[in-house]
Computed example of a mutant assay.
Amino acid sequence: MRNAASLVVLHEPNTGQATPALVDGREYTDLPELLGAAGGDAARITRGDSFAMDPEELLSPVGRPRKIICVGQNYLAHVHEGGRPAPPEHPDLFAKWDNALAGPYADVALPPESTQIDFESELAVVIGRTCRRVAQAAVRDVVFGYTAANDGSVRDFQFHTTQRTAGKAWDGLTPLGPVVVPAAALGGDSPDLQITGLLNDEPVQEDRTSHLIFGLPRLISYITTFMTLEPGDIILTGTPAGVGAVRQPPLFLKDGDQFEVRIEGIGAIRNTYRAETLS
């Protein structure tokens, strides 16, 4: 079996097959480089020769993005469940790095330093072109596609200070995938997709991406006011209501739990959580 882990592939669900993604006949080992070569244009991506692949081999569809920008408080019901009377005036942003990413079907380690590991189902945006100061009307030209993410959060560390980094940037706590679907197939820059989070097959989060407080045109225009975005950069757009930390009693992930993020038109990531054993 060919080693798909070293290639960007066009995954063919339920076939046991994958196809290398080519630009001008060349294979690529990560999506940022492929998108850069294609100029963010999905029509320039062609197929190589198919080969057998076990879907369990799939890694995060973006391995080494330059930037991962995350959005908090972006569904109104989530704002309210957190005890906030009104949404923020501007997008509530924080960052992760590529160390946080995990594959769509990977076992995810629960760190022993905390018992407050939470789930956050999210639509993730993959940027296709280098861009700065993008007008809202032009955002459709810089978005390549969408995938599913679980913004794993270590709640006690998150609230050690007023900054979120210590709770959000943990190694391997942000599964991503299973595929990146071009934006044109999912509603362009304003997708209306059902998003569901399931804990051990029981729905715990549910909403539609059209209910985002800050939609993609406004988000990306705002972010690119102060930052250049590049091919393969990721934006996690925020989580619906239902996170474990605000439930009574709180509902945190434990050894053996499975959490699934299912997004209409994209598919699902499903990860099993295992207690990490320190050597």
Rank of each mutant, 00 (worst) to 15 (best):
D151Q: 04
I234S: 04
G187I: 13
R84I: 13
G39D: 04
V143G: 01
L22T: 15
E206G: 14
L199N: 15
A100R: 00
P61F: 02
T277E: 05
V125S: 14
P65E: 13
L7V: 01
D49I: 13
L35S: 14
M1Y: 09
G244N: 14
E56F: 15
R47K: 15
P249F: 12
A21P: 06
S6T: 09
Q73A: 12
T147D: 04
G128V: 07
V204M: 02
S50W: 10
V134S: 04
R262Q: 10
L110A: 12
G167R: 00
G16K: 12
F159S: 13
Y28A: 08
V139R: 02
E206S: 14
H80F: 14
W97M: 00
R44Q: 07
G267H: 03
R44P: 02
A102Y: 03
F157Q: 00
V71N: 05
H211M: 10
A100M: 00
I223G: 08
R64K: 12
P182F: 06
G103V: 09
R133I: 05
S153N: 06
R64L: 10
T46H: 07
P175C: 10
P249I: 14
L199R: 08
A184N: 08
T165F: 08
P104D: 03
G103H: 11
D156T: 06
L173N: 00
F119W: 04
I117P: 05
E264S: 02
R2W: 05
P178N: 05
L219T: 11
I234R: 14
L216C: 03
T224R: 12
P61A: 02
T196I: 08
P88E: 07
G63R: 15
A268C: 07
A169E: 02
H160I: 01
F157W: 04
V71W: 07
P182A: 05
A149Y: 06
W170F: 02
I127S: 08
L31E: 15
A183Q: 03
F94Q: 00
E260Q: 09
G40V: 03
K168V: 00
L7I: 01
T225G: 14
D192P: 07
G39A: 15
V143C: 01
F94Y: 02
W97R: 00
P191K: 11
V9C: 11
P191H: 05
H90E: 15
T19S: 11
G128E: 08
G267K: 04
D30S: 05
S50P: 13
H90Q: 12
G36P: 13
A169P: 02
Q116G: 09
L253C: 01
A124D: 09
I213H: 03
T277N: 12
T225A: 15
A268E: 08
E89T: 10
T19V: 14
V8N: 07
A52Q: 08
E260L: 04
E264M: 01
L253Q: 02
P104K: 03
N200C: 00
P178V: 06
G145H: 11
L123I: 06
R66C: 08
D171E: 01
L7W: 09
V139P: 13
L123W: 07
N200P: 01
G256D: 08
D156E: 15
F119D: 00
T209M: 12
A241S: 10
R66H: 15
F94K: 02
G63W: 05
P104V: 03
P61V: 08
G177I: 07
V134N: 09
